[in-house]
Each structure stands twice: as structure tokens, then as C-alpha cells.
Nucleic acid binder design. Structure first.
Length: 458
DNA sequence: TCTGGGGTCCTAGGACCC
DNA sequence: TCTGGGGTCCTAGGACCC
């Protein structure tokens, strides 16, 4: 029996896996670059009527604001917060600097998102002291260097004998924490915790477990593998059985290939007009294929996603005989899929995705085969009538002066958009390198005022 | 002013082939 | 005439994560 041995092959003997998680990442970058917001509640996310919070600063969390909350609710809870649309170029740059730093420690770095990564310390050249004190010293130094390379951002570090334990550890002392779980202590740590700390246990699984009397990991340990499989399914059940015992031998995988590329948009109001919907699908097909082409990918399966007025979500997909990255082909398939759905009640979201990816690009064998409805002869999407043209132009037209955006003024220098409306833009003139700046307002069409960086993406 | 966007993984059923 | 399994591919939906 393996259970009694301290040397379980399903976890490592030494704490060699490190997890880093940058604290309130998007909001922290905003506070770094906008000195007037330091120490203040900041909410980054969708600022429109149907937006949700991507990240709330800790000051905003004190008001009950959190990720995935509708922004309207966040405004009610914390009306004095700064609500910002997000500057992904800045987040990507900070993320790049951190990932590069991590790769200087070990070549085995697995990014999970812009603000999170695993590092396999067992592969760190020249590092040999895997005692708790040894890895703690490394973790603390890493935090200092994260701050150096990002201009002062903080991260939380967890170190343990597996990915699972390292990730749990990084949560324990947020923000700006550093926790090492000593080998052998894993199960004692987990037992009193709620099952929802286990990654993969969300609301639905938690409810299923609650119904069989499982609330904590200690409760979970009492359930047989057979029963878990019955309650939550084969794959999930087996995983839970193991994680309840801290058994996790997953590797740190530095290079994971993309499996799909997709684009989706939620509209400010529901759309019914089929010509407009078709034109929106065309636009998304163009976006998605542009991203495919840039990544030198192509794919065989086109998926259309539609969310209706009642929030019900439907997907339709079709698989081509060979991969494509051609906008017209993807658009034609996606339009055909759209025509199979009843959208008469109104559409709040459309999405187009491509999967079954190949890392090579086949010649356009299927671009004009007409398999999915034929076929405007050559370039470009179908011509639009004037009315649809107008509607298309107005849907998703970027608000010119999104709050948070970097701008520069010919006379006053660099700042950021504090707010806009009624033809007026209010700008605070400050940067990461300046003290808190003053606020000035301009006409929205003031020729001296310029957007400094690429517009936010979401 | 109810509920984003970009992903991954899993399940279950049907088609099809051997 | 009746009755097989197993494997693979495809599709739709759902849970989950950041």
C-alpha cells in the first residue's frame, strides 16, 4: 500500500514547484501609471452597460467589488472608484517582463495567463538548496525582482511539491505574500479547507458535492473513487479523488499549443436584423482569420456562437475537409451556421471561432469550393445596402476617449482620460514617473489632443 | 443598466468503419 | 436473418479558469 509511505510517487519529495500570481494585476498596473489612483479604489473592465469587472484593486474589493461582477453593480457598491477600460499593451508589457524574469530562473516556465505562471525549480540551473529555507530565500528574492522589472508591482508566491499545492500556497497570504508548504504537510494543510479551493471545483461541482455531504477536503477524503465518479463524472471524479489526497504529478509544461482562436462581442443592445447580423459575423470572421494568419495557423472547424436575448447560448459548428485561414471561407461557413438558428428574439452576443488547428497553411483549396453556400465571385464580403452599412458602422464603434486611455497634449504633455461626454474630454496629466497631476478639460475634437497608445482591445 | 472575452477540458450521442 | 463490439470523428452543450 502506497498511502502510508511519505514517498508518494504522485508528488515530489521536495518543494520544487513555484507559482507566482501578480496581485490585482490590471488594477495594479493602472495605479502604477496613474499616481493619483494609488491607494484609491480602481476597477478595470467593461465600462458599458453590459460590462463586467475584470480586476478590482484591493481598495475597491473592500466595498465588495470583485471580478466577474457586472460593472453596474460595482458602480452601485463603489461609486467613487475609478472605472477604467483597460490598457492591454501595458499589461502585456509588464507580463512579458515577469515571464522573462522567471525564465532567467528556470527554463521550465508555464504561463497560465498574463499574471500567473508555474516555474519548475528542479530545472533551475545552479540551484541546489531545496530546503524550506532555501526555496523561501529564492521566493523572496523573486518578489523583489518582480518589483524591479515591473516598476513596483507585487506578486504572491507559493512553493510546494506539486502544481496544486504551489497554487494553493500562493493564495494563502495575498497580496504580496510568500508561502512554502513543507513536504509532508500537504494533507494537513488541505483537510480543513473548503472543496472550492480545489481548482476545477466551481459552483456546479460544489453543489453536487454538498448534496452528498461534502464541504471540506477532509469530507472529500472519505468518499470512494467510485462514488465520486458517479457524482461528478469519470475524469473529474478521479481527479478529485487524487487531489483530496494531495496527489498531483502534473508536469510544468512550457510550451502548450493553441487549440482554438475565437472572437466574440456582446452588443450594447440586442440585434434582430439578419443582414446586420450577417455583416457582424463577416467582421468577426475577418478578425479571427487575421489573428490566425499572424500566428501562422489555420483550422478546419468553424464555430458560430450566439447568445440570445434570454441569455441562452447556442453554438453551431462545421468542419471543412482541410484547414483554412481565409476570411471569406470562414465568413461563408459562419453565415450558413447563423442561418440555422432562430434569432428573431434578438441577439446579444455573436462569436466566431476556428479550431482543429494546423500549424501550417494549406493553399486555398477550399476557399471557393462553394460547399457552404456559394459564393460571391471574388474579393471581399457581400456588398451591403446603405442601411446595413450605417448600422454596422455604429455597432461597436469605439468610444473615442475611453477612460484610462493614455493621451498626450501638444502643450500639456502626457496624461490619461479621466472621463468624457457631451463633446468634452477630461484629462489628468500625470505618468508613472510624475507626481499626481492636475486635471484639465478639452473639446473632444481638440487637434492638440492625441491618443498615445493602441486602443484597448475589449 | 444582470451576467465580458479568450480560452481549456469533458461528456454524450450519432455516424461510420472494420 | 439477427446481432456484435471497438475506435474515431464530429457536434452541442456545459463547467471552469483567469
Amino acid at each position: 500500500m502506497v498511502g502510508a509511505s511519505p514517498y508518494d510517487a504522485r508528488m515530489r519529495a521536495e518543494p520544487t514547484i513555484l507559482h507566482v500570481d501578480l496581485d490585482a494585476f490590471f488594477a495594479a498596473v493602472e495605479q502604477r501609471d496613474k499616481p493619483s489612483l494609488q491607494g484609491k479604489p480602481v476597477v478595470v473592465g467593461g465600462i458599458g452597460g453590459r460590462g463586467v469587472v475584470a480586476t478590482a484593486s484591493y481598495e475597491a474589493r473592500a466595498f465588495g467589488v470583485h471580478s466577474a461582477m457586472p460593472t453596474a453593480e460595482a458602480r452601485r457598491r463603489c461609486p467613487n472608484a475609478a472605472f477604467l477600460a483597460g490598457r492591454f499593451h501595458a499589461y502585456r508589457e509588464a507580463s512579458r517582463a515577469v515571464m522573462e524574469l522567471l525564465r532567467s530562473i528556470s527554463p521550465l516556465v508555464e504561463p497560465l495567463s498574463l499574471d500567473e505562471a508555474f516555474v519548475d525549480l528542479a530545472a533551475a540551473p545552479g540551484f541546489t538548496d531545496y530546503s524550506v529555507a532555501g526555496v523561501s530565500a529564492l521566493g523572496l528574492e523573486l518578489k523583489d525582482r518582480v518589483a524591479e522589472v515591473t516598476g513596483g508591482l507585487t506578486g504572491s508566491v507559493g512553493i510546494g511539491t506539486s502544481k496544486f499545492i504551489a497554487k494553493i500556497a500562493s493564495e494563502l497570504d495575498k497580496p504580496n505574500g510568500m508561502v512554502v508548504i513543507a513536504p509532508g504537510m500537504e494533507r494537513d494543510l488541505l483537510r480543513p479547507m473548503q472543496v472550492t479551493v480545489i481548482p476545477g471545483v466551481g459552483p456546479a461541482t460544489a453543489e453536487n458535492l454538498r448534496r452528498i455531504g461534502v464541504h471540506t477536503v477532509a469530507d472529500l477524503e472519505e468518499i470512494s473513487a467510485e462514488e465520486l465518479v458517479r457524482v461528478v463524472g469519470k475524469s473529474h471524479g478521479r481527479n478529485l479523488f487524487q487531489l483530496a489526497r494531495a496527489q498531483d504529478d502534473r508536469l510544468v509544461e512550457p510550451e502548450r499549443e493553441a487549440k482554438s482562436v475565437s472572437v466574440e462581442d456582446t452588443y450594447e443592445t440586442d440585434h434582430v436584423d439578419r443582414r446586420l447580423l450577417a455583416a457582424l459575423v463577416d467582421r468577426q470572421a475577418a478578425k479571427v482569420t487575421e489573428r490566425l494568419t499572424k500566428a501562422r495557423l489555420s483550422g478546419r472547424t468553424v464555430t458560430l456562437k450566439v447568445r440570445l436575448h434570454d441569455f441562452s447560448t447556442h453554438t453551431r459548428s462545421a468542419t471543412l475537409p482541410g484547414p483554412t485561414d481565409d476570411a471569406r471561407t470562414v465568413a461563408r461557413v459562419a453565415r450558413t451556421l447563423l442561418s440555422e438558428l432562430d434569432t428573431s428574439g434578438g441577439v446579444r452576443l455573436l462569436g466566431v471561432g476556428v479550431s482543429s488547428l494546423a500549424d501550417w497553411i494549406q493553399d486555398d483549396l477550399f476557399a471557393d469550393t462553394g460547399e457552404f453556400g456559394d459564393t460571391e465571385s471574388i474579393d471581399g464580403p457581400e456588398p451591403l445596402d446603405a442601411e446595413t452599412e450605417n448600422a454596422l458602422a455604429s455597432v461597436g464603434r469605439r468610444r473615442a476617449w475611453l477612460p484610462g486611455l493614455d493621451v498626450t497634449h501638444d502643450e500639456h504633455g502626457q496624461g490619461w482620460v479621466w472621463g468624457s461626454g457631451r463633446g468634452v474630454v477630461t484629462v489628468r496629466f500625470e505618468t508613472a514617473a510624475s507626481p499626481t497631476g492636475r486635471v484639465l478639460s478639452f473639446a473632444a475634437d481638440d487637434p492638440a489632443l492625441h491618443v498615445l497608445n493602441p486602443a484597448p482591445e475589449t
